[in-house]
Nucleic acid binder design. Structure first.
Lengths: 239, 239
DNA sequence: GACAATAACCTGTCATACAGGCTTTTTTCG
DNA sequence: CGAAAAAAGCCTGTATGACAGGTTATTGTC
């Protein structure tokens, strides 16, 4: 058996938590869709019989998680799926050293081996074009590492989008922040222009395999890409 | 040497967002670890030159994401990695029909094919025991579906933990909420006791493979398990 | 030196106030 | 009559002050 940290009784989870639950419950029970408006703060205040402070902190919390959208003067609305909260959790794990960059890469590899295969099977022509475009822009901006990185990130997100499973997109996008903070290290480790161009070639190979609709080949190239990336990070001493 | 009150031009992402960033920035720059205390609200109020309302909403937002822990009378502290925020994002996606249960299962399958293999390679004896224990408890509570479900969930989370990669644990645990809301449907679809026992046997096979340290076999059983689970959900008409 | 009383600080919640953004209604003018 | 402009009304963003109750540090006593 395992040790539980929660005491057996939790009488008051706090008014704010209660309010948060009431709001999410409202979304569920009313079957609200993205864009639909939520009750005003005043209405919630009356319904829950608490102060506006409490209701406001609840709304603000949901807004911070990007579950709802708030803006001045208008009512809050149900938000489209967004990676905001996940990104913050991952970043928090990294900055407090509870997870390592290498662990993130291991998860990315696992997921992207799947997204790339799905993309090869399910991509539309437009999505294939977007993926190819990102790879092409990496080469064209070769002399500008920052630009290469952004197109690299866009490349991976485009593949996730082409998997037609928004959960994959969510996760892959959540990792982009970590990538932004470590990408340059991997790039510098590829000391020669030749090594750097080879890395870009790897992306083009993946794009081609997706365009051809060959999931096995796409996954093979993706595996190779990740193995090299992780090796680059390890060479640079990233734990 | 630094911050004056009003930067001349900022499209104003809002004072609260600014405060949130200031707090996370503080965690980063001070290199805080889980359990370390953050500045008091009053201190933050002075430092950012905003009202306590703003600072409070920022703290509360971070608390809702489980990035910090708050409790009455004590200062907020840096939180241990927690799946709270991720769970809420996934649940939000499900309730607003932006993602389907089947899409979640596809992601789970992808991830757990990896965690089970890693668990077979890296599990400690204690972890192997915990995994086996969960499988055993599933069988022992056979007549109580709710209990079977909880041990099923614990089983998968234990495997993720045994992968020794907290990011996997984070994601697997984030999906547990969805499982709780759909598990019974799959269970009912297995109409006969025989079919239900076979499903439990599948878990025991996985546990055995992990105990034996055979990643390939473990992954094979896990694949089978997921294929049957997804089939059960599809038979029940889950989109 | 141990221990209890107390002071100081901190968070949780409430009430109120006001500036400014949106939306709807009313008014006015063509 | 119709359309544009003005006003009214609701809504959110932020600030301030107040007080209850929990937590920690200090002090004073034995």
């Amino acid at each position: 058996m395992q040790e539980q940290t929660d005491p057996p009784d939790e009488p008051s989870p706090g008014l704010v938590s209660t309010a948060i639950q009431a709001i999410t419950q409202h979304i569920r029970s009313e079957g609200l869709a993205p864009g639909d408006p939520l009750p005003s703060e005043a209405a919630m205040t009356r319904q829950l019989n608490v102060s506006r402070t409490v209701v406001r902190e609840a709304f603000r919390s949901l807004s911070a998680m990007r579950l709802i959208d708030m803006s001045a003067g208008r009512r809050a609305t149900v938000a489209k799926l967004d990676t905001g909260a996940m990104s913050m959790v991952i970043e928090h794990g990294i900055t407090t050293q509870q997870i390592s960059v290498q662990q993130v890469y291991d998860v990315r590899r696992t997921i992207e081996m799947r997204t790339v295969a799905l993309a090869a099977l399910r991509r539309t022509d437009q999505e294939a074009a977007a993926i190819g475009q990102s790879a092409r822009l990496m080469r064209e901006n070769f002399s500008n590492p920052e630009a290469v990185m952004e197109h690299d990130i866009a490349f991976h997100e485009a593949i996730a989008a082409a998997s037609h499973n928004p959960v994959f997109s969510l996760i892959v996008t959540a990792f982009s922040g970590v990538t932004r903070r470590t990408w340059v290290i991997g790039w510098r480790t590829r000391s020669s222009d030749e090594a750097q161009l080879k890395m870009i070639k790897g992306h083009e190979d993946i794009a081609d395999a997706i365009l051809k609709g060959d999931p096995r080949l796409a996954a093979e190239h993706m595996a190779e890409h990740f193995d090299k990336s992780v090796k680059a990070l390890l060479d640079a001493g990233i734990a």
